[in-house]
């Protein structure tokens, strides 16, 4: 019997392995009870949106959109944190790597498979949640007629930008989980970077203004250095545009996408290096 393994080119074989591992990891995610719970909570949050938005005096529709977008963003963040921070170290701890990594699979492919499965799952969740959120917004919009139209395109864009943002965050989580042996560093590290990266633009603008002249040059340089090092999540926030149907500049969307692609790429390469050096 001829061995198919020997006949396949290395590239095609890597592609096969990547697909197979992505699907297997997707199965792992979909069969995880914790994530079912998170999605259940997401459903409850969305169901409550019309109730909350009815408290608004003048902008029920806007409040419904902003609450839905925030709920989606929050759920995607929790999912990213759970998935990303429990990836590599946990596979090593559960000794999955001792079985999978001894197949003719390179560690890079393994890592990419994990990332792709996470990305795919987040995408599926984003699509489902956006569909549910849209229904909720439609329902809430009837409560008080708004002067503004509902800009579905911008809403979709806002969710998509969030998704891209969380893929970047997932890259950080995976990088940290390749160096860690437990839950703590990846989870709290990723959370801290998320919060810092969400705030960095505000802080940067603050210290760039008048306040910046009062602090020592060295601290200022440290703050600015950190600002450029940290992922800048403010670049992915199109929620105001979606809620108030404002015009989005195409340039800023393109910029955000390229920024996320380069940053995530760098993170994954670092993760691959770190994982390659690791003893399993």
């Amino acid at each position: 019997m001829p061995l198919p393994a020997v006949l396949l080119s290395a590239k095609r074989m890597s592609a096969h392995q990547f697909v197979a591992l992505t699907l297997a990891n997707l199965r792992m995610i979909i069969r995880d009870r914790v994530l079912h719970g998170v999605l259940g909570v997401a459903g409850v949050m969305l169901v409550l949106v019309p109730a909350f938005s009815s408290f608004s005096m003048r902008q029920s529709q806007e409040v419904a959109i902003s609450l839905s977008l925030s709920a989606i963003s929050l759920v995607l963040m929790v999912l990213t944190l759970l998935l990303g921070t429990s990836s590599i170290w946990r596979d090593i701890e559960r000794r999955y790597t001792a079985s999978i990594m001894t197949l003719p699979v390179s560690r890079v492919i393994y890592l990419l498979g994990k990332f792709a499965a996470m990305a795919l799952f987040l995408l599926i969740c984003a699509v489902i949640l956006t569909a549910a959120g849209s229904l909720v917004v439609l329902l809430a919009a009837t409560q008080y007629p708004s002067d503004l139209p509902i800009s579905w395109g911008t809403i979709a864009l806002a969710v998509l930008a969030d998704l891209v943002k969380y893929l970047l965050l997932g890259g950080i989580a995976i990088l940290l989980s390749t160096v860690s042996t437990s839950f703590f560093l990846p989870f709290f590290g990723t959370l801290a970077i998320y919060l810092a990266g969400s705030a960095s633009q505000e802080v940067f603008e603050y210290v760039s203004g008048q306040f910046g002249q009062e602090i020592p040059a060295l601290s200022l340089a440290a703050i600015k250095g950190t600002y450029y090092l940290l992922p800048n999540f403010a670049a992915f926030n199109f929620k105001v545009h979606a809620v108030y149907a404002l015009q989005v500049q195409p340039g800023s969307v393109v910029f955000a996408c390229i920024y996320a692609a380069t940053y995530t790429g760098l993170l994954l390469i670092l993760a691959a290096w770190s994982f390659n050096r690791r003893a399993l």
Partner: peptide, 17 residues
């Protein structure tokens, strides 16, 4: 507001509401 702004990540709209 400055502190709130940097600590609510991308949820400033619902927090304002």
């Amino acid at each position: 507001p400055q502190i709130l702004k940097v600590s609510v990540a991308d949820h400033s709209l619902p927090v304002a509401e």
